[in-house]
Amino acid sequence: MKKLSAVQQKQQTLVFSVADTLEAEALKELGGMVQCWFDVQYHDFPASLLLRFQFENEERLSEATPQLKVWQRKLSAALLKKGVILKQGRQHLIFTVESPED
């Protein structure tokens, strides 16, 4: 794995901070949520950022789906507070039953 530059390390810290905050809030509010995980290519940040909220099964996923836009807006707002603007907020957070190993 290639070593991250100083700028990329700051981006990584920012992403972990936002993801941890949203995950803690979502675990309290969204029934059946297991974890939050993400993919990002730091050379193409923030466009490549994709957070995933993992749910325990399809039933829990379908129950939470109406809240997806709310959480997408929360992600955009949290990143904006850190000085990062997402041009297409809906593309950066999804709900899934897949785990990082899938």
Rank of each mutant, 00 (worst) to 15 (best):
Q11T: 05
D20P: 00
S48R: 02
L4R: 12
L93F: 10
A19Q: 06
L61I: 03
H92T: 09
L22C: 04
E59C: 02
P46D: 01
P46T: 06
V34S: 07
Q35K: 13
L80H: 10
L93M: 09
Q11I: 07
E29A: 15
F16A: 02
F55R: 02
K74I: 04
I94P: 00
V15H: 00
E23Y: 06
K10L: 15
V97S: 08
L22N: 01
L49G: 06
A24K: 14
Q88S: 13
Q8V: 08
F16T: 05
A19I: 07
T21Q: 12
L80K: 14
P66A: 00
D102N: 11
A64V: 05
S48W: 02
R60H: 14
V40G: 07
Q11A: 11
L14P: 08
Y42K: 01
K82Y: 03
S99F: 07
L50S: 06
D39G: 09
Q11H: 12
V70D: 05
K87G: 04
Q12S: 14
S5L: 09
F55S: 03
I85G: 00
Q41M: 03
Q8S: 06
L80E: 14
C36M: 15
K2A: 13
Q67D: 09
A6P: 00
R90S: 05
A24W: 07
D102E: 15
S62H: 11
S99P: 05
V70G: 00
E98W: 09
L49K: 00
T21K: 11
L51C: 07
A19M: 06
R90D: 10
M1W: 07
Q41W: 02
L30N: 02
M1Q: 09
Q12K: 15
S5D: 03
F55V: 07
E23N: 06
T13Q: 14
L30I: 03
